[in-house]
C-alpha cells in the first residue's frame, strides 16, 4: 500500500434546499455557495448567512474527504439546518461531480424590493409576553363581534408554575409546511399579504396542518383549523398587546405595528 497516496478531496456545493421557517437575511431556496479546497466562493451578487456558515463549517473538511468506515454517519449526512429555530433554513451539502466547473445558474433577474424582503409577519417575543390573552379577545372580537377566545386564531399557552407565556400564532413560514401537508389542498397563500389562507369548504379537518406546524400554532374551532389572515395586513390583536410581545413586521427592522407601550423590564 502506498502510504503516501494523497487523499482525494472533493469540492462541495452547499445549496439552500428549503426554508421551513423564515429567514430575514434572506436566504432563498436555490441560493448556494461552493467550497473548493480551502476557498469558499459565493456567486456574484449573492450572500451567505454568517450564522448558518458558522454552524456548518466543521462539516466541510469532513465532507470533502472520502470515508470508508462502515457505520460512520458522515457519508450519509447531507443536510444541515440553520441554528435559528425560527429560521429552519435547510442546507444540502453535495459533492460537485468531476468536470462540473460551472455552478447552477443564479437568477440575474432584477428583483423588486418587495420580493427581496420577506413578507411582514407576526413577530413573537415570549420573553416579554405577560400572558394576559388580550390578543385572543381582540382576535375574536374583531373577527366575529363576540368575545370568545375559542374563536381566536392566536392563543397563549401558559405555564403558570414556571411563568411561561407563549403566544401561538401563525408565523407565516416562508416554506409553509402546513400548506404542503394539507392532503385536501385547502391551504394556499394570499397573493397580497402572503398569509396562509384556508378554504374552509375544502378542508376535511384532518389536522395534518397542525401536525406539520413547527410552532404548534394551528388551533381548531369545531373541528376546523383557524388561520391567522393578518387582518389583511393590519393585525388587530397587536393593538391590545401592551408589552410588545406581539409585533408585525420583519425581524431586525422597526416593526410596522406594535411595540411595548411602556418601559417595562425585558422590553425595549
Amino acid at each position: 500500500m502506498n502510504l503516501r497516496s494523497v487523499a482525494k478531496v472533493f469540492d462541495l456545493r452547499v445549496v439552500v434546499e428549503e426554508v421551513r421557517g423564515f429567514c430575514d437575511l434572506p436566504m432563498r431556496p436555490g441560493d448556494y455557495f461552493e467550497v473548493k479546497g480551502g476557498r469558499i466562493t459565493i456567486p456574484q451578487g449573492k450572500h451567505i448567512c454568517m450564522w448558518a456558515l458558522a454552524a456548518m463549517l466543521p462539516m466541510f473538511p469532513a465532507k470533502q474527504r472520502k470515508i470508508d468506515e462502515e457505520n460512520d454517519w458522515l457519508p450519509s449526512t447531507r443536510h444541515m439546518c440553520c441554528p435559528d429555530p425560527n429560521g429552519m433554513v435547510i442546507y444540502r451539502i453535495e459533492r460537485i461531480p468531476a468536470g462540473d466547473n460551472r455552478g447552477p445558474k443564479v437568477s440575474t433577474k432584477e428583483v423588486d424590493d418587495r420580493e427581496n424582503k420577506p413578507f411582514p409577519r407576526m413577530l413573537v417575543d415570549e420573553k416579554v409576553c405577560s400572558g394576559c390573552r388580550s390578543c385572543e379577545l381582540a382576535c375574536s372580537f374583531y373577527k366575529t363581534g363576540l368575545f370568545s377566545v375559542d374563536e381566536a386564531s392566536i392563543r397563549v399557552a401558559k405555564d403558570e408554575v414556571n411563568g411561561m407565556d407563549r403566544p401561538l400564532v401563525c408565523r407565516q413560514c416562508g416554506n409553509a409546511r402546513c400548506v404542503q401537508a394539507c392532503p385536501a389542498g385547502a391551504l394556499d397563500r394570499h397573493p397580497e399579504t402572503h398569509a396562509v389562507r384556508l378554504y374552509a369548504e375544502v378542508c376535511t379537518g384532518c389536522g395534518a396542518c397542525a401536525e406539520a406546524c413547527p410552532f404548534g400554532s394551528v388551533h381548531f374551532r369545531e373541528g376546523k383549523p383557524l388561520f391567522c389572515d393578518l387582518c389583511g395586513g393590519d393585525p388587530r390583536c397587536i393593538e391590545r398587546c401592551a408589552t410588545g410581545a406581539l409585533r408585525y413586521g420583519r425581524a431586525g427592522e422597526p416593526p410596522l405595528k406594535g411595540g411595548p407601550r411602556a418601559a417595562i423590564k425585558g422590553g425595549r
Binding site: S130, C132, S134, G163, D165, I264, K265, G266
Partner: peptide
C-alpha cells in the same frame, strides 16, 4: 423580576 405578568385581558402588566 423576570418579566411582567397580567390578569386576563389587562394592558397594565402590574404583576
Amino acid at each position: 423580576k423576570v418579566k411582567s405578568k397580567s390578569c386576563f385581558g389587562c394592558t397594565i402588566p402590574c404583576s
